[in-house]
Amino acid sequence: MTRRRILITGASSGLGAGMARAFAARGRDLALCARRVDNLEQLRAELVTAHPGITVAVRRLDVNDHAAVPTVFAELRDELGGLDRVIVNAGLGKGVPVGTGRADANIATATTNFVAGLAQAEAALEIFRKQDSGHLVLISSMSAVRGLPGKKTAYAASKAGMTALGEGLATELRRSPIAVTTLQPGFIATEMVARAGDGALVVPLEKGVGAMVAAIERETVRACVPQWPWRALNLVFPLLPRAIIARMG
């Protein structure tokens, strides 16, 4: 099945913008939202110039404004004449060791990555249930596989919540016309990964996005991307001694 009309949140940079470019090259119509509208407008101009046959709609959206999420999703649906796929991609990578006086950073990360992710899933599935079709994609992380220490604790916990949300929805909707995919990307070269200092195993943005889009198109229930080495590490991480995990903080 070709999902022609695709909504992507957090599309102003990084993985969101990368996926927008990849899907535009496949001739898909796009609904792009993020806080930075100027970036979205520049991206729209780039995409329609490179691919004149597609439609690109943009809206400003702060996903932490939970009441605004269903309104913006509905506006974008109406502008494109429907939505076939929603990619919940907006996220935050701030974090400090828990209990060190910066609870605001950890709470912001947990709220943006999980609570706002849930709000986006609610809005997308309300649309999909009414039309009895659609594909929900949740962007989690390989950090969800194992709790991580230090500045990554809140981030890993928030992404574990996203993976659990995707698993529950995929189980609930397994016999319905609505598909659910959870992606767990490894280290892909974005600003967020650079700030986290995860230099090892980082793959170029284009390669990482290509692996993500391929898994999305297959509508895999859960995928670690790129497959190598992350599919293998998905099995290894839960078995590693805590002394080794402690070095990842």
Rank of each mutant, 00 (worst) to 15 (best):
134 G>F: 04
174 R>W: 13
110 A>Y: 08
164 A>N: 12
178 I>W: 00
151 K>A: 14
181 T>L: 06
106 N>V: 09
124 A>P: 02
193 V>C: 07
157 A>K: 01
169 L>C: 09
158 S>G: 04
162 M>E: 09
192 M>L: 07
121 A>K: 02
197 G>L: 11
152 K>N: 12
109 T>H: 01
119 A>G: 10
139 I>L: 06
167 E>F: 10
188 I>M: 01
169 L>S: 05
108 A>H: 07
145 V>K: 05
103 A>P: 06
189 A>D: 10
114 F>S: 12
194 A>K: 11
109 T>M: 04
146 R>V: 07
180 V>K: 00
127 I>H: 13
115 V>C: 10
104 D>I: 06
112 T>A: 15
134 G>D: 03
149 P>C: 04
103 A>W: 12
193 V>Y: 00
135 H>W: 05
117 G>R: 02
146 R>Q: 15
103 A>Y: 09
179 A>K: 06
128 F>A: 00
142 M>Q: 05
137 V>W: 02
176 S>W: 12
109 T>V: 10
132 D>R: 13
112 T>V: 15
159 K>F: 12
118 L>T: 04
198 D>Y: 07
192 M>Y: 08
112 T>G: 09
104 D>C: 09
115 V>Q: 12
128 F>G: 00
126 E>F: 09
116 A>K: 02
166 G>K: 00
169 L>W: 01
157 A>F: 01
116 A>W: 01
153 T>Y: 14
170 A>G: 15
135 H>S: 03
152 K>A: 12
125 L>T: 05
123 A>W: 04
126 E>M: 14
163 T>R: 13
160 A>E: 00
196 A>N: 10
125 L>D: 04
173 L>Q: 03
107 I>A: 14
113 N>C: 13
